[in-house]
Design a protein around this nucleic acid. Structure first.
Lengths: 179, 179
DNA sequence: GTCTATAATTTGATAGAC
DNA sequence: GTCTATCAAATTATAGAC
């Protein structure tokens, strides 16, 4: 295993905090304490808080898209999609970053909003393609159902996390995967 | 029309900000400026920011539940439920307060989390009752579908708001109301 | 009820030594 | 790259005059 750069360690801590309390809920000093350095050193790696927020968001999206892969490579694509969200909630015990950023959208650096929008759009297209090939829906039907699924899964994360009820997430996603 | 008390005017401004940038995104000074008074005067009405946040959340939930009424009083309850969320997005041009608070949950005063949880639970029960009587589902089926609907609607608000696409909200909710 | 004044703390950020 | 020191601004909150 390659040794992590300090930059990556900072990104790790910042992602944890952003997915827990949002962009407006954490400070660079807090990240510094978590990493074991001083705030000034965080600013060496990321000149501004916005730079850090953007880097976290870009890394999050890149990793999610990598884990997602191509819809055609999965025998049960909707289930695969649900599993990624399930892992965020159960393994990471965190929300989807773009759920929190979407809720905070009016107070974020514009680049972060663009990343968040790209996250949603890419997932909608992925789901649409998956639905067309796996459930032989029309393009229009697939587009509509893709939005229903993405909305449901993000909402399922929200409800399950708020109510501290992980099983609720699986119950909701099962509605779309058990067909 | 009764004249609004200063307390209510403060609550109005605070609700707008909380539904736009969240609890961690606004300051008492900002509310004071919006209302046209000084920050110290806001603290006269609400000793702490948490007191203000709690009051906003309680008023929001009370009003929502009043507008919701009883499921048995509506000929098309799911559509009625969708309309309330639609109005939040289209008329208020805002998210559901509990969507933002649910995303910020780890950094909120405990009373606000309790209110948010109550909001979700009350709506789940309302939807369950509506589904049992209007779609003659079993209690178990109704409970599961109620969670799917609430998650979808909250997620639909998130996606529509982020992507600046109000029509997307109606398209998603139509999946559950046009049956 | 609202104001001025102010306190205590936090925050984002920079300069410059090592 | 990391530190100390420091800054300017913002934030929550209180005391006390009017």
């Amino acid at each position: 295993m390659t040794v992590k750069s300090k930059r990556e360690i900072i990104l790790d801590s910042a992602e944890i905090r952003m997915r827990t309390v949002g962009y407006n809920g954490f400070s660079t000093r807090e990240i510094a304490n978590l990493v074991g350095i001083k705030a000034a050193s965080v600013h060496y790696h990321f000149p501004s808080k916005a730079d850090l927020g953007v880097a976290v968001t870009q890394r999050y999206c890149t990793r999610f898209f990598e884990a997602l892969g191509e819809p055609s490579h999965s025998p049960a694509p909707i289930k695969h999609f649900a599993t990624l969200f399930h892992n965020a909630l159960i393994n990471d015990k965190k929300l989807c970053l773009c759920l929190i950023l979407g809720a905070e959208t009016s107070s974020l650096p514009e680049t972060m909003n663009q990343e968040t929008n790209h996250f949603f759009k890419h997932n909608l297209e992925w789901l649409e393609e998956a639905l067309i090939s796996s459930q032989s829906l029309s393009e229009q039907q697939a587009k509509e159902k893709a939005a229903v699924i993405l909305a449901s899964f993000e909402g399922a994360l929200l409800l399950s996390n708020s109510l501290s009820n992980p099983a609720l997430f699986d119950s909701i996603t099962a509605y779309f995967t058990e067909q």
